[in-house]
């Protein structure tokens, strides 16, 4: 299932938390050779994980991490504006643009890489549409770019840097209901299911409790 968890909520899911940060090490350090910090638990974490980011996570049936990405607003400190200005040509700052980073697939998802990637991107699209944003901006590597292309939601590339497997790009994705529908099909998730997962994370009322705000009031907005 898709879970949407802020960093201060993820410790409620110890297995999910542990496997997510380990899988990030496997992908970014072991496979891509990025120079990142690993703590003694074997977790890859950086300064942005300390800023209470939002994680969109595909959780496997056994409760472990199947894939994820990390989301932060571009109006505050964020990776793209702190570290990739030479790639983008300068900070991108807007309340209508959020950044997505650390797009990661678990080795346990490799047989279903296409579907899981689609599910994570679907989560990104739900975030954008659900919170009325315009675009996502993100850092990605060449390998992931192929996945984006296959899923029909390629970013517009704002700039690239580096060579070979260390090559990274910054791209821009526009949110739209059409993209959501396409990603639902690619992920094998119904639109209703996807909406329910999003609502379960952000709408207390849809967790089964009756809405407690009393009183239908007759006043109408103009």
């Amino acid at each position: 299932m898709l879970r949407y968890l802020y960093a201060d909520e993820i410790s409620d899911y110890p297995l999910l938390q542990d496997t997510m940060f380990r899988d990030r090490k496997t992908q970014f350090v072991d496979r891509l050779g990025w120079d990142l910090t690993i703590d003694r638990r074997g977790w890859e974490q950086d300064a942005y994980d300390q800023m209470n980011p939002l994680y969109a996570i595909w959780q496997l049936p056994d409760g472990s991490h199947g894939g994820s990405m990390r989301v932060l607003p571009t109006t505050g400190p964020c990776m793209i504006n702190d570290h990739f200005c030479d790639v983008t040509g300068g900070a991108i700052t807007s309340p209508l643009i959020w950044e997505s980073t650390r797009f990661c697939l678990s080795p346990r998802s490799l047989e279903k890489a296409g579907r899981v990637s689609a599910a994570i991107m679907l989560a990104g699209c739900e975030i954008g549409l659900g919170f009325h944003l315009g675009h996502a901006v993100g850092v990605f590597d060449a390998r992931i770019a192929r996945i984006y292309r296959r899923l029909g939601w390629s970013p517009e590339i704002l700039g690239s840097q580096g060579q070979g497997r260390k090559r990274v790009s910054v791209g821009l994705w526009e949110f739209s209901p059409q993209v959501r529908d396409r990603l639902c099909s690619a992920a094998g998730i119904t639109a209703v299911q996807s909406r329910d997962w999003f609502a379960a994370a952000f709408h207390h009322e849809s967790c089964g409790q009756p809405s407690s705000i009393p009183g239908q009031v007759s006043a109408q907005l103009p």
Binding site: P73, G130, F202, H203, H204, I213
Partner: peptide, 24 residues
Amino acid sequence: FQRFHPYNWKSLDWEKKTARQFFQ
């Protein structure tokens, strides 16, 4: 103040007695 997504007040947890009283 720890979050950054916009929210409809309707989506918050108003179940607690203190919250219900506050709402009134």
